[in-house]
Write a protein that binds this DNA or RNA. Sequence first.
DNA 1: GGGCGCAATGTAAGGGCTTACATTTTGAAA
DNA 2: TTTCAAAATGTAAGCCCTTACATTGCGCCC
Lengths: 338, 338
Amino acid sequence: MEKLQLPTLEDVARQANVSTATVSRCLSRPDTVRSSTRERVMEVVSELGYTPNFGAQAMAARRTNTIGAVIPTMDNAIFAKGLQAFQEEISKQGANLLVASSSYKKGMEEKQIRSLIARGVDGLLLIGDDRDKEIYEYLEKRHIPYVLAWNYRDKAPHTYVGFNNFQASYDMAKLVIDYGHRRVAMIAGVTEGNDRAFDRLAGVRQALSDSNIPQESFLVVESEYSFDAAGNAFEKIANNEHRPTAIICGNDVLAVGAIIRAKSLGINIPEEISITGFDDIELSTVVEPGLTTVHVPHRRMGTSAANALFAALKEQKTRSRKFETQIIQRQSLTAPRK
Amino acid sequence: MEKLQLPTLEDVARQANVSTATVSRCLSRPDTVRSSTRERVMEVVSELGYTPNFGAQAMAARRTNTIGAVIPTMDNAIFAKGLQAFQEEISKQGANLLVASSSYKKGMEEKQIRSLIARGVDGLLLIGDDRDKEIYEYLEKRHIPYVLAWNYRDKAPHTYVGFNNFQASYDMAKLVIDYGHRRVAMIAGVTEGNDRAFDRLAGVRQALSDSNIPQESFLVVESEYSFDAAGNAFEKIANNEHRPTAIICGNDVLAVGAIIRAKSLGINIPEEISITGFDDIELSTVVEPGLTTVHVPHRRMGTSAANALFAALKEQKTRSRKFETQIIQRQSLTAPRK
DNA sequence: GGGCGCAATGTAAGGGCTTACATTTTGAAA
DNA sequence: TTTCAAAATGTAAGCCCTTACATTGCGCCC
C-alpha cells in the first residue's frame, strides 16, 4: 500500500520556527529548552500528530530502551504471571518490552532471538538454558546481556534467575515415595530442547534410585502441554498391566489433563491414583481434587529477572539468583490403598 | 553500556568484494543474484555473524513487515487462543507480530498504540471499539489499517472481526430465564472502557426487560477479572436479602471465581445458585460443576483477523466478518429449586 | 558600557539500509 | 566474431533522527 508522507522532525522544526535539534530536545530532555520555546514546539507536535520514527531514533541514538523476551508459549499460564511481573518492572524503569514466542521449537527460538536483536533490544530474557552453543556465542559477540529464567544452575557461565527444577522435582518424588507409593509413573513434558522438563524427569529418577525403586518399574510418558495429550498419556499409563499408584506430572497442565481424563474414565483421584503437578498456576486450585504441586514464586522471579537485566545493562555485570520452591499439598496426593 | 561495532552491510560487501546493493539483494531477493555471487556473500554473512539493522531497514524500505496487536491482558486465557491463531497466520504470511498489553487502561492502550506505530507496524489488531475518537483519527491520519476483534457491529465505520456480544449475552440470559429463573444477578466485567463487558451487560438487561422482569430486582456487581474479585462479588450477591437463583457472569474467569467462592462458603452450585460464564476457555471444562457458557470461536476469529489485516494492507480495503457464538451447556445452570 | 559566563539554540555529521537508475557482464543469435 | 538484449552488479541519494560542537543571546558585575 502506498505510504503517505508523515510529519517529520523537520516539519515540526520548520513550523515552530526552530531547529531540529531543539525539537528533538523538547521531546527527550524538555528541561534543556526554554519553556516558551517548548510550548510552541509541543503545540506544533500535537497539531501535526507527530510521532518520532523509532527506527531513525534507534539508529541515531544507538539504543532502543527496549528489552526482549522469548518465551516458549503464551498459550498456557505457565509463564503468564512471571512475564507480567517482568513487564511491570521493565515499565517501571521506563523501558519497553518486546515479547516473542517460540512454540517450544529451537529453530523458532533462534529466529525470534535474531529478530529481537535486529530490532535493537538492549537485553534479552530467555527461558531455561537448553539451546545451541552458537546462540550464546552470537549473544556474546554482539554484547547483548541476557538472563535465563525458570531454571537455575550453580556452575554455568550464564546468569540464571530461577529455581532448581531437579531439586524441586526430586523433593516432590520423595514426598510421593514417603506417602508409600512404590509403583510410580511420570507424565513428563517433552524433554527435547526443554531443560526444565528434562531436569524434572531427572529429579524423579534420582529420587527413585535413592529409594531403591528400580527404574524398570518406572513408567515415563512424554506429552505436550495440553489437556488432551496429557489425557492420552494418562490413559496409556492407567491401562498398563502394572498400573502405578501415583503419577508425577511435569507441570500443572499435564496434571489437570490427567485428572480430567481420569474422571471421564471413572478412575478416582486420589483414591485409585495419586497425581501431582508442578508450577502452581491458578488451574491447580480450580480442579478437583485440588492439585498437590510445586509452588514457584512466579512474580518475584519475573521482577528479579528484570532487575538482573538492568544491572547487566548498567554495570556490565550481574549475578544469578536462586529462588526456593515449595510443595503445596492439596488433595490429589494421598497414600496408596492397601 | 558501551556498544561495540557490529558488522554492517558495508563490511559484508567489502569482504565479499561486491557492492552493498548486491548484499542487500542477496538477503531480500536472492533470486536476483547469480548463485556464485550469492554463495560468496552468504558465507561472509555467516562468518561475520551479520544481522541487518532493523531500524535502518525499516527506514530505508519504509515498511516493516510487522503487525502490532494491543490486547487488554495476557494474564488470563481470554485472548490467548485467539492471539495464538492470529500469530500463526501472521507468521505463515511471512510477517512478524508485536504484542503489547494495556491492562484494560485506556491511557495505557493509547500509549501502546503510539509506541507500536512509532515502531513502524504496518497494521494493528485492537480489541473492541471503546476508545477515544482521537485514536481513530490518528490511525486514519497515519493510514494505519486496523481491525477490531472480539466484538462486532453492523453499522460502524470500522472493520470488525468478532461476534455480537450483546446478542450472545441476550441469548444466554434468555436461556437462564427459560429455565425458570426470575431473581437474576450479574457479575459483570468492569464496563468502563470495555465495550464487550458493556454489551454483555446490556444484553442481559434487554433480555430481562423483554421477559418483563423488573430491573430493580436485577443485581449487578462489576468486578475485575480475577478469581478473588469475582469471589467477593459473588459473596456480596449471595448475601443479598433476596438471594438470586442465578448469576450470569461476564466471562469464565468471573464465573469460576464465583464457583470457587461458593464452594468455600458451602453454597451448592447449581442447586442453590446457577452460574453461567462467557468465552468457553479451558477453565470451564476443569471446574466442577462444568460451566455452562458461551462458546467463542477464538481460533477462527484470530486467523480471520490476520487475513482481514493483510487484505487491508494489500487492497487498501477490507470488510468486517461476523462469527456466531453458541451456548455450551454443562452443569452449572439448572432450574431453580421450588 | 564592556566583558564574562552560562543558558539556549543552531549546524551538520553520521547511523545502516533500500532501491531507482546507471553501468557492466553474459550469452545467445546472427 | 560481432551484436545486443537481458541479467547482474554498482552508484549514490535518501529515509529520520541524535548529539558533539559551534554559535548566539542574555543577565550581571565591575
